[in-house]
């Protein structure tokens, strides 16, 4: 396996891999997102209690899941970067961070817009909301730490360490609704076989989760390509790209 994996440590091979994967992610994103949004907004039945306001779930839950998923991926890349000293992994950390920050911002904004009609407040200093806000700050911290260093090797290391330390926040977010008394409701879709969510709402939600995951993948690949190009811009293989158009 190592023999097969090893060439991808090289920047140009990694760049090619990104190019190969990108169209698949892009197509999955476009198809799932269009179908997911139309299904969720127009075809899924209204909730018996929350009526049509619950439709925010179709972007709120996917973005919240992916805000944590993207952070986990970023932390894994950070571990790889620190342990095996792979520069591409460092670049992956920096490629994921802005995407993760955007997804986290979406989770917070949609949460606020859902909280106002249902709870009566845009924001409460509740454990779930506060820990999710900290997640946003962690993403921004990783980014600004990376850009604070002139020496990109030190920058990558510092950002990776912060990314790994921040993992402690993930279980806090996940279990916040159980550990503390909060306004935020508990988990529903991760509790299997409890019929907490009807199939007519579950499937469009699932589709939107796939769409968000594919979107995060797509933009991360695009940004990783950018980071590789930026880092390698004096290399001949980058110059050859220009001739191909």
């Amino acid at each position: 396996m190592w023999k097969w994996l090893h060439p991808y440590a090289k920047a140009d091979r990694a760049y090619q891999l990104c190019n190969t994967l990108l169209p698949y992610f892009a197509v999955i994103t476009v198809v799932c997102m269009i179908v997911g949004w139309v299904w969720g907004l127009a075809y899924a039945p209204a909730d018996y209690q929350q009526k049509d306001s619950y439709r925010i779930i179709f972007i709120h839950v996917p973005s919240a899941i992916l805000s944590m998923g993207a952070y986990s991926s970023m932390a894994i890349a950070a571990i790889v970067a620190l342990v095996w000293q792979l520069r591409n992994a460092e670049l992956a950390v920096i490629a994921i961070a802005p995407v993760g920050a955007c997804v986290t911002a979406i989770a917070l904004i949609t949460g606020a817009a859902w909280g106002k009609p249902m709870w009566g407040a845009w924001w409460v200093w509740d454990a779930r909301l506060t820990s999710e806000l900290i997640l946003l700050f962690l993403y921004l911290g990783v980014l600004s730490l990376y850009h604070a260093f002139e020496d990109k090797k030190a920058a990558g290391r510092a950002a990776s360490i912060l990314a790994i330390v921040g993992v402690i926040n993930l279980p806090i977010i996940h279990f916040s609704v159980e550990w503390w008394n909060t306004l935020h409701q508990g988990a529903s879709i991760t509790k299997f076989n409890t019929n907490a969510i009807d199939p007519s709402m579950f499937w469009p939600l699932m589709l939107n989760i796939v769409a968000f995951a594919a979107f995060v993948g797509t933009v991360t690949l695009m940004r990783l390509k950018n980071e590789i190009l930026q880092r390698e811009k004096h290399r001949p293989w980058v110059r050859q790209l220009l001739n191909r158009g």
Binding site: W37, L41, A46, K51, D52, S53, R55, I56, I59, H60, S63, P98, V99, C102, A105, I106, I109, T110, A113, W114, K116, P117, F215, V219, M222
Partner: peptide, 24 residues
Amino acid sequence: AMGGYGFYVWLSFGSCALILIGIL
């Protein structure tokens, strides 16, 4: 109108679309 919740639903979907398109 979204059964009276239009503002909140469209605010959510609108800002979501804006952010996604922005980073793209």
